[in-house]
Amino acid sequence: MNERISTLPVPARQFRVPLSATRRGARLGRLLATEQLLAWGLPLDPARLIVAELAANAALHGRVPGRSFRLALAVTAEGVLRIEVTDARGDALPGPRPAATGPAESGYGLLLVEELADRWGMRQGPVPCKTVWAEIDPAGPSAHFAPGPGNT
Score class of each variant (00 low, 15 high):
residue 71 L to I: 11
residue 11 P to Y: 03
residue 39 A to F: 01
residue 15 F to I: 05
residue 126 P to G: 11
residue 132 V to H: 03
residue 21 A to E: 03
residue 6 S to F: 09
residue 140 G to K: 00
residue 26 A to V: 10
residue 77 A to Q: 13
residue 55 A to Q: 04
residue 101 T to G: 14
residue 54 L to Q: 09
residue 64 V to N: 01
residue 48 R to A: 02
residue 92 A to E: 14
residue 71 L to M: 11
residue 14 Q to W: 13
residue 111 L to I: 07
residue 22 T to F: 11
residue 133 W to A: 05
residue 98 P to M: 11
residue 14 Q to K: 12
residue 99 A to P: 06
residue 87 D to E: 09
residue 131 T to R: 01
residue 148 G to F: 02
residue 117 A to P: 07
residue 22 T to S: 15
residue 81 L to H: 05
residue 112 L to E: 02
residue 133 W to F: 14
residue 69 F to D: 11
residue 25 G to P: 08
residue 38 L to S: 10
residue 97 R to L: 13
residue 62 G to E: 09
residue 116 L to R: 11
residue 58 A to E: 06
residue 134 A to N: 01
residue 30 R to F: 02
residue 74 A to F: 03
residue 2 N to T: 10
residue 120 W to C: 12
residue 101 T to R: 11
residue 36 Q to W: 12
residue 59 A to K: 10
residue 105 E to C: 03
residue 67 R to V: 07
residue 143 A to I: 01
residue 61 H to W: 14
residue 128 P to H: 03
residue 81 L to Q: 10
residue 24 R to N: 07
residue 82 R to A: 13
residue 59 A to N: 09
residue 78 E to V: 04
residue 108 Y to P: 02
residue 37 L to R: 12
residue 129 C to T: 11
residue 149 P to T: 06
residue 144 H to F: 06
residue 122 M to D: 04
residue 12 A to P: 02
residue 3 E to W: 10
residue 113 V to Q: 01
residue 64 V to P: 03
residue 133 W to K: 01
residue 100 A to R: 13
residue 41 G to Y: 05
residue 65 P to G: 04
residue 99 A to N: 00
residue 89 R to C: 13
residue 94 P to G: 02
residue 101 T to D: 09
residue 150 G to N: 09
residue 41 G to W: 04
residue 131 T to Q: 00
residue 118 D to G: 07
residue 80 V to I: 15
residue 76 T to V: 01
residue 144 H to N: 06
residue 39 A to M: 04
residue 101 T to F: 06
residue 6 S to R: 14
residue 122 M to P: 01
residue 98 P to C: 12
residue 29 G to P: 07
residue 48 R to I: 15
residue 71 L to T: 13
residue 5 I to D: 09
residue 99 A to W: 00
residue 112 L to W: 00
residue 148 G to Y: 02
residue 124 Q to Y: 08
residue 125 G to M: 01
residue 61 H to K: 09
residue 24 R to K: 15
residue 9 P to T: 00
residue 45 D to G: 02
residue 85 V to R: 02
residue 141 P to S: 09
residue 77 A to H: 14
residue 64 V to S: 13
residue 59 A to Q: 12
residue 105 E to V: 15
residue 20 S to N: 14
residue 65 P to K: 08
residue 36 Q to A: 04
residue 83 I to L: 13
residue 86 T to M: 15
residue 87 D to T: 03
residue 69 F to P: 10
residue 82 R to F: 02
residue 116 L to W: 07
residue 91 D to L: 01
residue 62 G to M: 01
residue 105 E to R: 15
residue 75 V to E: 15
residue 71 L to R: 11
residue 138 P to Y: 05
residue 24 R to G: 08
residue 34 T to C: 05
residue 121 G to K: 08
residue 98 P to V: 11
residue 35 E to K: 06
residue 54 L to H: 04
residue 3 E to Y: 08
residue 22 T to Q: 09
residue 51 V to E: 11
residue 113 V to C: 00
residue 132 V to R: 08
residue 8 L to W: 03
residue 127 V to F: 04
residue 129 C to V: 00
residue 128 P to S: 07
residue 23 R to G: 15
residue 33 A to E: 13
